[in-house]
Design a binder for these strands. Sequence first.
DNA 1: CGCGCGATTGATTCGGCTCAATAACTGTGG
DNA 2: CCACAGTTATTGAGCCGAATCAATCGCGCG
Lengths: 235, 235
Amino acid sequence: MSKRVPNPKCASCGSRHKSVFCSLNSEQLIELDEEKSCDIYSKGEAIFKEGSYPRGLFCVNKGKVKLSRTGAEGKEQILRFAKAGDVMGYNSMLSNKPLAATATALEDASICFIPAKEFFSLLKDDPRFSLNMLELTAKNWHTASRLLTDMAQKSSKQRLAEMLLWLKETFGLDEDDCIDVKLSREEIASMVGTATEAVIRLLSDLKKKGLIHLDGKKIQLVDIHGLATLAELND
Amino acid sequence: MSKRVPNPKCASCGSRHKSVFCSLNSEQLIELDEEKSCDIYSKGEAIFKEGSYPRGLFCVNKGKVKLSRTGAEGKEQILRFAKAGDVMGYNSMLSNKPLAATATALEDASICFIPAKEFFSLLKDDPRFSLNMLELTAKNWHTASRLLTDMAQKSSKQRLAEMLLWLKETFGLDEDDCIDVKLSREEIASMVGTATEAVIRLLSDLKKKGLIHLDGKKIQLVDIHGLATLAELND
DNA sequence: CGCGCGATTGATTCGGCTCAATAACTGTGG
DNA sequence: CCACAGTTATTGAGCCGAATCAATCGCGCG
């Protein structure tokens, strides 16, 4: 399945400056290059699975990844996404708990792997890296607390509108204002926390109201402000 | 409202060894004692409010605190609780975002306040403290991801059973196997993410099934294993 | 002892889930 | 390049959990 490939160099990684590794010096980057490895995962392939213990940190070099959790009846719940420059698996290593989520490639992706030893050595020796990681985990909490509140209090229509805006923030829009990621209706449903059929009906509803346009998996955001209003207020 | 009181000493704080401060040496503890302050908040009083920026870290010395967030229509959603030894407000400081939650004393509480400067100085100079904080924020994520999945997928009855077990884990049981915290039905509802009336009906349901006993605000857990089964499986 | 908020119960409504049937689409091999 | 098989998307009907609204009860507190 996954295929080992030559390491891309951290120093020339376009995403480094937006990542937790932004503060590393060239010496640290060279060490990282020596210790890490890199694999290609094809679309749909699992990078790691919830419940297991990771031996290191995963960092997305290229591609899009969904992080999801399997609920009581085997139903998937998407927790977040990762794209180039994002790291995964750190929560599990830091808390010494099994991985809370499964990571799956949404498209062919190249993922670097940094052994735990190297990760902890950075944490111990570089306070700036520690602070970056703390900032990252703290932001996660901020996002999670909002999601939790929304999930508990908002209607599925509001949540869908919100998720569309979230996808826009995460992946951006292409030249046609379409959300730049391909997700199945089922995957959207497991973000919103509802049934696939409901997503289809709600999307078609939003289209009818002129807030979005649909063309297969492509979702064009027509009225972003309208979506935001819908997500906040009721109906 | 809140009343400044003489600082309790960190070194003699019964909760220190279970807290993020467990690794501090006596010198660091003395410095902490000098920098911090301590206030008494009475039941129902707000310790801090979501949306504002904290000037430091809050640490519960005595008492129980709920951390909640106000949703779109002013409805409260309880995110977590804090008790002696727990710290609050760090996510906001670390991510430089406004506080995501409001902290309210559930009973008269004594809360220490550690100025941001001192907090960041500890983070910078003591890698063990950084690691403790990282472990804490990472565990938060683990909990939040489970809550999120449950909120999205489980029935309100299952969530209620789960919350009762969660309260047991957090606050423990008294000599009568009653959950050792007093919450209104409304507060329970804003944990579970449902309406007050629903909580009442569901609690009475659990009582009928012999899983719990009720006596006013006191909730006695009769069949913990049964509750756990209910929380996991369907109905 | 009475007031008022929190708790409880009942009736009704509605959103959203489930089940079922069809249609559109994707990739695969002939 | 087309036919086929297996998904994935869509639509419809019916049902159920849970929210809402309304009324009463009971307990704690002043």
